[in-house]
Amino acid sequence: MHQRRLPRHRPHPHRAPAGPRAQDDLNHLTAGLTRSHHAAPVSYQHLADTLGLPLGARPPLEEAAAALLADREARGLALPDGGLDARQAGSVFLNPTITPAQAATVHAAGGPVHRGGDASLRASAGWLLEHVGHRPSSRIVPGVHCSTRRSLTLTAHPGATATAFTEALQLLVLQVFTTTGIRLTPELTLVG
């Protein structure tokens, strides 16, 4: 086992500094790592399908990493080096747990429904946002837009503020709830 001391947290170079927060007080971390040429067992069905392997398989590390990065890029999940999507908050809502009646309504409207790890029914938060009219690149409030690649990622444009992001989240929660009766839960941690 190899131990490596990680440096103090530094903000991403394409993001504005967030200011001092309790989450940023990590001074050092010691991690125990084991060298391997194979990835951990694949537990994500989409990645297993991409690799053509069953769940639990341990593909070569380079192959798994390349497939994961390609998949994230194709689905608009990779952080770009520049452009409109470089200043983003990432995916902003969790996929909500829904009732069987809500699942039937979402499914009838063409939306995806899947089972969570706890066997609960879940709707796609991104699909719900698109269902109420928010497509990639759409403006939510002044300064805050959906990314150019996916509705679930919010990006900062000129004039964006923390207050604008909070207003955008609240507006989206309200619009989805009013239209569908499904309550979205922000994935972001709001500080202050």
Score class of each variant (00 low, 15 high):
Met1Thr: 15
His2Gln: 12
Gln3Val: 07
Arg10His: 12
Ala18Gln: 04
Ala18Leu: 06
Ala18Arg: 05
Ala18Met: 07
Gly19Trp: 03
Gln23Ile: 07
Gln23Lys: 01
Leu26Val: 13
Leu26Asp: 11
Leu26Gln: 10
Asn27Pro: 10
Leu29Gly: 09
Gly32Ser: 11
Leu33Glu: 00
Arg35Ile: 13
Arg35Cys: 14
Arg35Glu: 15
Ser36Pro: 12
His37Asp: 14
His38Gly: 02
Pro41Trp: 09
Pro41Tyr: 09
Ser43Thr: 15
Tyr44Phe: 06
Tyr44Arg: 15
His46Phe: 11
Leu47Arg: 06
Ala48Thr: 15
Leu51Asn: 10
Gly52Arg: 09
Gly56His: 01
Arg58Met: 12
Arg58Cys: 12
Pro60Gln: 10
Leu61Pro: 00
Leu61Cys: 09
Leu61Ile: 02
Glu62Ile: 05
Glu63Trp: 06
Ala67Phe: 00
Leu68Gln: 04
Ala70Asn: 08
Asp71Gln: 10
Glu73Gln: 07
Arg75Ala: 04
Leu77Gly: 01
Leu77Arg: 04
Ala78Ser: 14
Leu79Phe: 11
Leu79Asp: 10
Asp81Pro: 11
Gly82Met: 07
Gly83Ile: 11
Gly83Met: 05
Leu84Ser: 13
Leu84Arg: 15
Leu84Phe: 01
Asp85Trp: 08
Gln88Met: 06
Ser91Lys: 10
Phe93Lys: 00
Leu94Asn: 01
Pro96Glu: 06
Thr99Asn: 02
Ala101Gly: 13
Val106Ser: 04
Val106Tyr: 00
Val106Ala: 01
Ala108Pro: 01
Ala108Asp: 14
Ala109Gly: 02
Gly110Pro: 07
Gly110Met: 13
Gly111Met: 05
Gly111Trp: 03
Pro112Arg: 10
Val113Phe: 08
His114Phe: 15
His114Val: 12
Gly116Arg: 06
Gly116Leu: 12
Gly116Trp: 08
Gly116His: 03
Gly117Met: 02
Leu121Ala: 07
Leu121Phe: 00
Ala123Glu: 04
Trp127Gln: 12
Leu129Gln: 04
Leu129Ala: 05
Glu130Ala: 06
Gly133Asp: 05
His134Ile: 03
Arg135Ser: 13
Pro136Gly: 06
Ser137Ile: 01
Ile140Phe: 01
Val141Tyr: 02
Val141His: 05
Pro142Gly: 09
Gly143Asp: 08
His145Leu: 00
Ser147Trp: 01
Ser147Arg: 04
Arg149Val: 07
Arg150Tyr: 06
Ser151Asn: 03
Ser151Arg: 03
Leu152Asn: 01
Thr153Asn: 12
Leu154Trp: 02
Thr155Ala: 06
His157Thr: 09
Pro158Gly: 13
Pro158Arg: 09
Gly159Glu: 11
Gly159His: 13
Ala160Gly: 06
Thr161Ile: 13
Thr161Val: 11
Ala162Ile: 02
Thr163Pro: 11
Thr163Asn: 10
Thr163Lys: 11
Gln170Lys: 02
Gln170Asp: 15
Leu171Cys: 00
Leu171Tyr: 05
Val173Ser: 06
Thr178Gln: 05
Arg183Lys: 07
Leu184Ala: 00
Thr185Val: 15
Pro186Asn: 00
Thr189Ile: 14
Thr189Phe: 14
Val191Asn: 10
Gly192Phe: 09
